[in-house]
C-alpha cells in the first residue's frame, strides 16, 4: 500500500492546508476567511480532477458538472422547509418536507454525483483521445442544460437562494486533508498503478481491453464523488448560486490549477491550487483597485483570466508536466536525505 515516501508526501502536503486557519486567524479578516475556504474547496475539486486525469491521462470536461450535481442535491436536501416554499415553489412534495443536516446533505450530494457518474460513464471509458474529450464535453453540456431547465429542483437559470451557511474554514480544510489522503491512496492503489502504467502506452492500453475501462471507471467515480462533495461544501458556503457557476469558466479555473501545478502528481494539484489562488487573488485585487481608482474610463474585467490562460499555455509549452513534474514531493532528493528509505 502506501510506502514511506507517500506517507511523507501526505504530511508535507497537508502542512500548508493546516496552516491556513492559523494564518487567517492572525489576519482576522473576513475576506481572508473567504479566500482560504474557497481555496480548500477548489483544492478538493482539483484533487478530484487529478484522480481521473492524472492517472488515466484523459482530459474530462464533465468534472464541474458533478460539482453542480453535488451542490444542487445538498441544497435541496438541507434547505429549511419554510425557505423551500419560497425558493423552490414547484418542488416535488416528497422533497419539500425534508430538511437534513447540512453535513449529511453534503455527503448524500457527493454520493448522488458518484452514482450519476457511475451510471452514465461506464460506456464512455473505452473511448480515448478526441472522442473521449468530446463526449465529456457533451456530458457537461447535458448536465448544464438539465440544471438550467429543471426548474422544480434548481429554480432554473435563476439564482437559488435560502441555504443556511454551514461550511466554515475548519470543515473545508479538514475535508481537504482527507481528500489529499484519498488521492494519494488511489494513486498508489492497484487501479492507480495500472492506469499510470498504460497511460502513455496505447498498445498496452488496447491489450488491457475491458479491464482498462473498469479501472478508468473507478477513477472517474471517485473523481465525481470528490467533485460532488466539493459542490456541496461550496453550496453551503456561498448559500446562493445559479447553474452558471458550474460551467466553462469554473472548468477553466480548476483545469488551470491542475495544469500549472502538474497533473501527474497529487503534489502538483496541491501546489497548483495554492499558487493559482494566490496569483488570482492578487490579480483580482489589482483589478478592483484599478476599477476603484477609475484609472480607465471603463471597468477592467477579464484580466485575471487572460493571465491564467497565458500561464497555462506557457506551462504546457515550457514544462508539459506542470511545475511539480512527475515526482511527488516526498520523493524529492532533499527529503530523501532527511528521511532515508530503509527498505532500499
Amino acid at each position: 500500500m502506501l510506502n514511506r515516501q507517500s506517507v511523507l508526501t501526505f504530511f508535507l502536503l497537508i502542512v500548508p492546508i493546516l496552516l491556513l486557519p492559523g494564518a487567517v486567524g492572525i489576519m482576522d479578516q473576513r475576506f481572508m476567511q473567504r479566500i482560504a475556504t474557497v481555496l480548500c474547496i477548489n483544492l478538493i475539486l482539483v484533487l478530484g480532477l487529478q484522480v481521473f486525469m492524472g492517472n488515466s491521462g484523459i482530459l474530462s470536461f464533465a468534472h464541474i458538472g458533478f460539482m453542480g450535481i453535488g451542490a444542487y442535491t445538498s441544497a435541496v436536501l438541507a434547505m429549511p422547509v419554510r425557505m423551500k416554499s419560497m425558493a423552490l415553489p414547484d418542488l416535488y412534495s416528497c422533497l419539500a418536507t425534508i430538511e437534513l443536516s447540512p453535513i449529511l446533505a453534503i455527503l448524500i450530494g457527493a454520493l448522488v454525483a458518484g452514482l450519476v457518474a457511475a451510471l452514465v460513464s461506464y460506456p464512455l471509458m473505452r473511448l480515448s483521445d478526441a472522442a473521449a474529450v468530446i463526449t465529456s464535453f457533451a456530458l457537461l453540456v447535458v448536465i448544464h442544460t438539465i440544471m438550467v431547465h429543471w426548474s422544480a429542483l434548481t429554480n432554473g437559470p435563476r439564482t437559488l437562494f435560502g441555504l443556511k451557511s454551514a461550511t466554515n474554514l475548519y470543515l473545508a480544510a479538514g475535508s481537504a486533508v482527507v481528500m489529499v489522503a484519498l488521492a494519494l491512496f488511489f494513486k498508489e492503489s492497484r487501479a492507480g498503478v495500472l492506469l499510470r502504467a498504460v497511460r502513455d502506452d496505447e498498445i498496452a492500453a488496447v491489450g488491457m481491453g475491458a479491464h482498462l475501462s473498469r479501472l478508468r471507471w473507478y477513477g472517474f467515480i471517485l473523481s465525481a464523488l470528490m467533485a460532488g462533495f466539493a459542490g456541496g461544501l461550496w453550496a453551503h458556503f456561498i448559500t446562493s448560486f445559479s447553474p452558471n457557476a458550474f460551467y466553462l469558466k469554473e472548468t477553466f479555473v480548476i483545469l488551470g490549477m491542475l495544469i500549472i501545478g502538474g497533473s501527474l502528481t497529487v503534489s502538483g494539484a496541491v501546489f497548483g491550487t495554492f499558487a493559482v489562488t494566490i496569483a488570482y487573488e492578487l490579480l483580482r485585487f489589482t483589478e478592483s483597485s484599478i476599477n476603484i481608482a477609475q484609472l480607465f474610463p471603463k471597468p477592467v474585467v477579464g484580466l485575471t483570466e487572460v493571465v491564467l490562460a497565458c500561464a497555462m499555455i506557457a506551462t504546457l509549452i515550457l514544462k508539459p508536466g506542470g511545475i511539480m513534474g512527475a515526482r511527488e514531493i516526498g520523493h524529492w532528493n532533499i527529503f530523501r536525505k532527511f528521511f532515508p528509505d530503509k527498505n532500499v
Binding site: A130, F252, I259, V306, L308, A309, I313
Partner: peptide
C-alpha cells in the same frame, strides 16, 4: 486540447 481551450478563454477575455 488544453492549450486550445486556454486560447479560447484568452480571446474571450481580451
Amino acid at each position: 486540447l488544453i492549450t486550445s481551450f486556454a486560447f479560447s478563454t484568452l480571446l474571450q477575455n481580451f
